[in-house]
Design a protein around this nucleic acid. Sequence first.
DNA 1: GCAAATTAATGATTTATTCAAG
DNA 2: CTTGAATAAATCATTAATTTGC
Lengths: 209, 209
Amino acid sequence: MVQRSSELKFHSSDRGTESLREFLKNMDEGMSGFCIRNGSVRGSSGTKCGRWNPTTEQVKVLTELFSSGLRTPSTDQIQKISNQLSFYGKIESKNVFYWFQNHKARERQKRRRKVSSSSDDDDDSNKDVFRRANVMSVNSSTQNFAQVYKVSEPKRVMETLELFPLNSFGESESKNLRVYANECRDNMFSYTMREQMDHPPLDLCLSFM
Amino acid sequence: MVQRSSELKFHSSDRGTESLREFLKNMDEGMSGFCIRNGSVRGSSGTKCGRWNPTTEQVKVLTELFSSGLRTPSTDQIQKISNQLSFYGKIESKNVFYWFQNHKARERQKRRRKVSSSSDDDDDSNKDVFRRANVMSVNSSTQNFAQVYKVSEPKRVMETLELFPLNSFGESESKNLRVYANECRDNMFSYTMREQMDHPPLDLCLSFM
DNA sequence: GCAAATTAATGATTTATTCAAG
DNA sequence: CTTGAATAAATCATTAATTTGC
């Protein structure tokens, strides 16, 4: 299925569109070689990874977080979660993002289908809006985003996940609220990875503040 | 399989819309450096980041590109287009992304509303091909885009528009990918919690032990 | 028992809607 | 009123479950 659509056909009427011209030019160039997704490559080795397949632990943690109230993690949160979960297996930030998005949507859907009673149960709309934006990455099958992403994740040191940074924005919007607050507690995790997966190797500490 | 459901319901009314902006900012503002996260800069502080206001030239080029068949530019394309257009004025990648998205949607909508006669002879059609051909389409729900950019792109400076970067993904991605350490990644966001949230605004610390 | 075939889950994309700045 | 921004809903696609015939 090779599709090439180099359809870019612009009206060559030149007006002061030198820039466009340039764009298109470049575009064409780029067009020439795009390789992307070679359909098959399946099942073979790891390079061509299909979609993310979360491990039990990963799902567990994600689910916990979700049921703890986290619905639309911020970019940072996603990064952190991803970092943490990478311990259990391959995972990328976007996966976390998608997971939350799908999970949220499907829970809602499930609820609706079941009983439309409780008015509008979940809907955490506000938060979503608020942060979704920052969150994930795209894999763009071909792009090297994945790579990049990958890179960016590992670098981060594991810190405690701080979800729901309580503090209402809106008012004390002091210019820089770069409250590095949590920096201090950077490494308090100690990965005692236990062999037995029976018990969650990790402790989810919910601290209410 | 088993999914937990604990929906919270936050019907807050506020939507924060600065996040995306913020991230994207970091992304291609690697050099521009402007407006450092002023979330809801309501009261307005120094750098007020209003929404993008495209210049005539920018719109012109974008429109040309659109009518030339480009419908869903890939991330790279966006990046490049953005770079090019920055010549005409302030612009960010996300603006390009959104522009295409909105323009596409609105053209379609317009068409429908107007006359369903001309079916879809518009340029949109071929765009599909275009996009399809390149699996690398930007896709990623908007947010993704944002994130991706933010995280992955910061370092890539493009000078020439190179669309459709052919690169075989999948292999050693350990390339250099500058990690782009965004130091203040800890900016906390604030959710406006509603009284009736199911879950208390908790600070969720996930520590692996 | 064990694969091919079929179905159920769910990861990933795309589209439609919504909100609000100017 | 236009349109940038952002999300939720709908959809597509692929993997895991499972069913079924042998």
